[in-house]
Amino acid sequence: MKKIYARPKGLYRNINGYCPGCLHSAAGKIIMSVLEEMDLLDRTAMVDGVGCCANNDNYMDLDAIGTPHGRACATASAIKRCSPETIVITYQGDGDLASIGLAETMLAANRGDNITVFFINNANYGMTGGQMAPTTLLDMKTTTTPFGRNPKEHGYPMDMCKILSALRGPSYIARVTCIDVPNVRKARQAVKDALQHQVDGKGFSMVEFVSNCPTNWGLTPLESLRFAKERMLAEYPLGVYRNL
């Protein structure tokens, strides 16, 4: 018997801390399997954002650093400038990248720093109890918008792929999702392309994963996939936004 699908070597042999059905762990699995395939596991440094991303410490076996709220891109830029041979990736949620760390993200992208950003968008602050994030959908109920997000009061969802595509610095920007098998395969290709841009020294690359949050959305895992497919993908269309 030949093993035709194996658990990526870079994942620890233990249960990870994410909720059942959370696609954070799917993103981590894809990243580790691509790093293994490209033979980059032992020269990669990961910068974790704040929040659910901190669960990566007992999931992904990489050199990692946890940063203060939102400062992952700034830390990653520093690592890359001090050690250009290291492959530097950041792993951030939407509260971390699009709200608290918006300045760091925009400036790193504008400088075209040669780092790869993985952005997990689940439309709320998952770890702290499901508060509204900049990416929360209109009319979506969260613990801080109990009557639904109202654009007059709370503004509109932020589309980070489009915002960063307006800058001249980034070389690769794509939005993918892991809600079904064809999309998982496309996500894997996008992660590979983004890392290849960094290996080739082309500049800032970002992959946004449209994700789910069964716990804070108050849905079962399978219902949350349907919600992500119907509502999240309508607001956040998939595709490659920049590929230089």
């Binding site: 018997m1 030949k2 093993k3 035709i4 699908y5 194996a6 658990r7 990526p8 994942l11 249960i15 990870n16 994410y18 059905g21 959370c22 696609l23 954070h24 762990s25 799917a26 699995k29 892991c178 079904d180 098998v181 998982v184 395969r185």
Partner: peptide, 21 residues
């Protein structure tokens, strides 16, 4: 049938698939 779809979708990488050569 060894299509590996379950292993591809599994978020926690709990499934491994074997097939005869």
């Amino acid at each position: 049938i060894g299509c590996t779809l379950c292993a591809v979708i599994c978020p926690d990488a709990a499934i491994e698939v074997y097939k005869e050569e």
